[in-house]
Write a protein that binds this DNA or RNA. Structure first.
Length: 505
DNA sequence: CGTCTTTGACCAGCGC
DNA sequence: GCGCTGGTCAAAGACG
């Protein structure tokens, strides 16, 4: 999150932004822009289109954008002045020097303002994050009592918590290798501690059950004792029924695979009973020993619907694109955890994700399945009738913003780890996908930056950008096929397989 | 040559 | 115990 803002600031301050405002050669910038710490390579994404776009934004948006314009103007003056100043330096050294000092002062002032804006945004984000987590905690705690009365449910909760542990540090670490805001770290630590305490409490609530905390990403943060042997851990986990929750994502797609930001290796394919289309099995190959598996299968009723089922937790940092999906599935698992999937009246727990406007989802918890499985239905429009599934005890709820299927897997859109827009948080739901996206873009500067970067990239920026670590990460996501991650599916992916034409195994 | 996919075989869980 | 089914393994082939 902070990274996003930081990146935004980088865009605003970077040298190319100056360059596009003046024909002055780079060398003039070298003299004048030391203090703004330009990230020139990132700015390679930005052309004058971004500038004009950005100026339009600044007319309609809040203070930060206004500040941006001010910064731009100031830097423009600064960047264009040195050549002149060199020519006139001998005549008016003092006046020029004082002018430069004034410009410097202005820039410092803008820097301070931007920093305070960033701090404010960060603070708001942290507050919202904390509130969300506390709400989840409260709901989970409240529902635990009910679920304890049901056979097997405690272990289900436990498993789900293992599965969906928010693990904000893992998510943020991906984007913030250079260190994050102290307050954010504090919050992350707090949340981690709370999560572990919660796990511990639930473990204790299951007498006679040996439960391993087998989440991969937990392993990185747990005590060495728990970090001993992953395979052993998995073995232990395999002894426990309901060791993992599964999140099944239904998305309408003609392509055979959802590109979710991770690297997957296919290790099997089977014909499932009652479905003419084969089920493919994939495991995550982004890290050795990553326990995450996924199954991909087309819906028997509607072959245009692709069902992707995720199981397990990654034991490695996720790239932004994968984080988007992870957030979505975690949110779904959180719904499962919260017990809303058991609600008899089928009322959604939309309080969790009031911002997730378009996707009508069905949460399905099947008691007969070996794992508790929640199904997110991304195939429905906001006005569509919810997809009904045979299993009992279903509830529908809106999906997180990260669940936009069109955005999943797209490196440029992957990292909207911002909280939803204020309007969305107030429960206003745009009536269409376009409105939703528009609202998201308008309210989220990171979206704006990402969109601008994407457009710039498409319009002729170098395909390889070595200056943006997050983009590199996402390139890595598709390193196996060497093509950029498509919006939702990977038609050209080598993972493509012919559906419904393989014999059973 | 390394990586990935394909696919038949194998294994475990479950119901009868 | 047997058969069915789901999930995984691993050898062979394809591909870049």
């Amino acid at each position: 999150m902070e990274k996003q803002h930081r990146r935004e600031l980088t865009f605003l301050h970077s040298g190319d932004f100056l360059r596009q405002n003046s024909g002055v050669a780079d060398r003039t910038l070298d003299d004048s822009s030391h203090h703004v710490k330009p990230h020139i390579k990132e700015m390679d994404f930005f052309s004058t289109q971004y500038q004009s776009h950005h100026h339009r934004e600044s007319k309609t948006n809040g203070s930060s954008s206004l500040v941006d314009s001010c910064v731009n103007i100031g830097l423009n003056l600064l960047s264009s002045s040195p050549e002149v100043s060199r020519a006139t330096n001998e005549e008016k050294p003092n006046a020029e020097e004082s002018a430069l000092k004034m410009e410097l002062e202005k820039l410092n002032e803008e820097n301070r303002r931007l920093r305070s804006t960033l701090d404010q945004i960060t603070k708001n984000y942290n507050e919202l994050k904390g509130q969300l987590f506390m709400a989840l905690q409260k709901q989970a705690h409240r529902n635990q009592g009910e679920q304890d009365a049901v056979n097997g449910m405690p272990s289900t909760i436990m498993s789900v918590q293992q599965f969906m542990d928010p693990r904000p540090s893992a998510l943020l670490d991906v984007n913030e290798p250079s260190g994050s805001d102290d307050k954010t770290r504090e919050l992350e630590n707090t949340m981690e501690v709370i999560s572990k305490e919660r796990d511990h409490r639930l473990i204790q609530s299951i007498p006679g059950k040996k439960v391993s905390v087998d989440d991969g990403s937990d392993q990185t943060s747990q005590s060495p004792k728990l970090d001993l042997d992953q395979s052993k851990n998995e073995d232990q986990a395999s002894e426990v029924p309901f060791r993992k929750a599964r999140v099944s994502v239904r998305a309408r797609s003609e392509a055979p695979l959802i590109s979710d930001g991770c690297q997957w290796r296919k290790y099997g394919q089977k014909m499932a009973k009652g479905n003419p289309c084969p089920r493919a099995y994939y495991r995550c190959t982004m890290a050795v020993g990553c326990p995450v598996r996924k199954q991909v299968q087309r819906c028997a009723d509607d072959k245009s619907i692709l069902i992707t089922t995720y199981e397990g937790n990654h034991n490695h940092p996720l790239p932004p694109a994968a984080t988007a999906m992870a957030n979505t599935t975690s949110a779904a698992a959180a719904m499962l955890l919260s017990g809303s999937t058991k609600s008899k009246d089928g009322l959604p727990s939309s309080a969790y994700f009031p911002s997730l406007p378009y996707a009508t989802s069905m949460a399905t918890l099947s008691a007969s399945a070996p794992f508790p499985t929640i199904t997110l239905d991304l195939t429905q429009g906001p006005n569509a009738v919810p997809f009904l599934r045979p299993p009992p005890s279903t509830a529908s709820f809106p999906l997180p913003l990260h669940g936009y299927p069109q955005l999943l897997g797209n490196p440029m859109f992957a990292p909207p780890k911002l909280p939803a827009s204020p309007a969305m948080q107030l429960g206003q739901r745009p009536t269409s996908m376009a409105e939703t996206v528009t609202a998201a873009i308008a309210s989220d500067p990171n979206f704006t930056a990402a969109l601008a970067a994407a457009i710039s990239t498409i319009m002729g920026a170098p395909p390889r950008n070595n200056g943006n670590s997050s983009i590199n990460n996402n390139e890595n996501n598709n390193s196996s096929n060497g093509v950029p991650a498509p919006a939702l599916t990977a038609p050209g992916s080598p993972q493509v397989q012919q559906s419904c034409n393989n014999k059973p195994g």
